[in-house]
Amino acid sequence: MSSEAQKPEPTKTSDTSQSVDAMPRRRFVNFILGGGLLTTLGSIVVPLFNFMIPPKIQEAVQNSVVAAKVGELPRNSGKVFKFGSKPGMLVHNEQGEYKAFSAVCTHLECTVQYREDFKHVWCACHNGHFDLTGKNIIGPPPRPLEVYDVDISGDDIVVSRV
């Protein structure tokens, strides 16, 4: 119904025009409401659903970490592994025991390595030497390396903070 048609008899048609006008208006309101509701629900459900999908990296605990597999390291060798955001050092000594330390040199925080020829841990930066109890034996390092516990569970060599 056009507005021009209403003009001649404004008082009489006011009721009917309102009820006829109300239909599209109501639809519009319902459209906005429904759209808002759907999109809002979407923006609630999407994060929740994503949250429930387990992330690939399952290991939340950083107090212990699988540093290597049994058999991965021959005797008289070592490897550096990631422990939290810092490097750790796993050593398989000649007697067949596993030892683990923080791989952060106590001198200037370089990453240390195992030297097969020395049979102990060595820091390349300033030629610091640590024995296999973590003790600083030669060179500038002022303190021993932090020592970690090593446990073997199944095939895994698990290193954990003491």
């Binding site: 999908i53 939340a60 107090n63």
Partner: peptide
Amino acid sequence: AEAAFESVQFIMTEVKFG
């Protein structure tokens, strides 16, 4: 005590929308 902090860290960093 060993895992609580790390698990919250895990939620905040690894889990989507965590």
